[in-house]
Amino acid sequence: MLPIQIIFISFFLAALWFTWRRKAYAWSILWILASIIILLPQSTTVIAHAVGVGRGVDVVVYASIAILFVLIFRLYIAVERLERQLTEMVKRDALKQLP
């Protein structure tokens, strides 16, 4: 086993333990899938070839960046909506001071 695999696997084991302690078993799917990719990097080659990417690792990196981009974008929009709601509250509060 490569050192990087040991680091990742111990992280996922810790993650499993933390999520199980909170009875959030659904998270296990994510950690187990990630562990499979770390332990058997070749397994992603099948997907990579299917979509026309040379190496399996590359497809994982591309997919991660795309997913992160979408998540951050959604986060920004959620914050913007929250800010608008906050502004609405501040406005209502201010208008109570009208004579």
Partner: peptide, 15 residues
């Protein structure tokens, strides 16, 4: 009229 928090010029104009 006083905004309890700083919400920006656009917000102040709407109020």
């Amino acid at each position: 009229l006083e905004h309890a928090l700083n919400r920006g010029q656009g917000a102040a104009l709407r109020t």
